[in-house]
Amino acid sequence: MLSLRHYKSVNINNMRRINIILLSVTICLGGIVFFLLCRYTHESKKSDVNKKAKETFIKAFGQELKSRDLEEYFSFNYNAKTLLTADMPDSVYFEDEFGKHWYRLDTKKHYMNVTDNANVRSLHSSTFRENPIMVDSLNNIWKKCLQDYDIYVKSGLCVSVTGYDRKVKSMSTLHNSWCNISNQVFTIYVGYACEIEIVGYLNYSIWNMMYMEILIYLLLCAVSVYIIYRTSIYVVMKIKSMRQKEVVQMPVIEFVQEMTNTPIRSYIMHDDVIFYAEQKKIEKLGGTKEKLQPQSCQLLELFFRAKDNDYILTDNDIEKELWGNTGTNNRLHKSVGRLRSSIQKVEPSIDIKRNASGYQLLL
């Protein structure tokens, strides 16, 4: 007969598998929540940094203008007929000693200009046509303005100027090794014809932007995973105790089988196979049940009483118990065969073998 220690070992192994599954599920859920929190925070912070970057650049651009001589005479004009039917002219021209120079206006660039004041735009065009923007100088001013907002990262600019034919005639870039679309924070146009394009870049990483939030989220997710895991284990144990009361009460079963005078006689035959002598049945927990005939039940219980003798019964022992020494060998063999057949319907690994002087129950 298997001991209670073996039975408990099976339950412990099953519980370990459940624990591993629950822990894996909670860790996966915690990882998903951590990823979503980091993504949301990153998008929020990125949007805030981009907004501040544009604000600080406009401030830096204003400081750059203050260093220029803006007393130069200039003239500009536009298509008055188009202006009557649209929010913006379709073209403008500049007039100098060489004549008129026409520009076609782009709607998208028009609404991304650094200012919506037509006179100021013309002032920008006149100023930067004669004295182009110095990328290094403007970037240094912008960098100082960024630091006023506690943004300490590398900054870069790309300035391109479009000619009368709408083709780029000049371009200058600062830190072009990492100035790419992933680090771009804004695009601004300058001039009445939006002929000057300025693209701003910031070289920052996710860790530099939100390292404190990452550490906090990691801590919160770890605590949440532990709480959810412990709660899940508690719930599983409660459900298991409700559904398997017989398994929980197995220690009582083994204790009872030592009390031969009690009307309740139960024996553990295998990991999950129990012989209920009082009810004359063999049952596999959560599985097959087999009803025993009175004589088979009496014979099986007789084998268990021979525990100290390795569950071995002689032919004389069996005949004396079942028939009072009036049985025959044929009746004895049939009785043992009937019991063996009933047992193996529930658990094929349990057998009754013939030896020199009788039979042995092999659990």
Rank of each mutant, 00 (worst) to 15 (best):
K109G: 01
I239Q: 12
K169G: 06
I350N: 05
Q279W: 01
S24R: 11
K280P: 00
V247C: 09
R68E: 09
G156F: 05
K81W: 13
Y189G: 00
Q249Y: 11
A306K: 03
N13Y: 12
S349W: 00
L339E: 07
V247Q: 14
Y192T: 02
G191N: 04
Y234T: 12
K51W: 13
L332K: 06
S125K: 01
Y78A: 02
E258P: 08
N19I: 01
V10Q: 10
I233G: 05
I268D: 01
M112L: 15
K52E: 08
I253C: 04
Y73T: 08
G358W: 06
Q279Y: 11
A118H: 08
D315W: 02
Y152D: 14
A277D: 11
L174K: 10
N180R: 10
E258Q: 14
V223P: 07
C179R: 02
K291Y: 11
F57E: 03
P132K: 02
S160P: 03
Y152G: 07
T107E: 14
T115C: 07
K109F: 09
K51L: 14
D116R: 00
D310L: 06
L29M: 11
T187I: 14
T115Y: 03
N309T: 04
N11A: 05
K109W: 05
V10G: 09
S205T: 15
K154A: 04
D148E: 10
M237V: 00
L220P: 00
K46I: 00
L215E: 08
S91R: 15
K307S: 11
Y211C: 12
L105R: 01
D87W: 05
S125M: 05
E347V: 05
I27D: 09
R340A: 06
N50R: 08
N139A: 11
A193L: 03
Q257D: 09
I133L: 13
I312E: 06
S170A: 15
I350Y: 03
D310V: 02
R121C: 06
D69H: 12
V120P: 04
R338H: 14
L292N: 04
T260Q: 13
T288A: 09
S126E: 11
N330D: 03
L123H: 07
V225G: 03
E195W: 07
D136K: 14
S182N: 07
L84P: 07
G337I: 09
L157M: 04
S137D: 15
K320C: 11
S75L: 09
N50G: 09
N329Y: 13
H101L: 09
L363R: 12
S341I: 06
Y111Q: 00
Y267I: 00
Q360E: 08
T115E: 06
D165P: 08
L123F: 02
G200L: 10
D272A: 02
M209F: 07
V25H: 05
K291W: 02
S357H: 08
L215G: 10
S44P: 12
E71M: 02
V159I: 15
L84R: 10
D165H: 11
V336N: 01
I21S: 02
F57C: 07
Y201R: 03
S24Y: 06
S155K: 04
L363K: 12
K167P: 03
K238T: 01
G99M: 12
S335H: 11
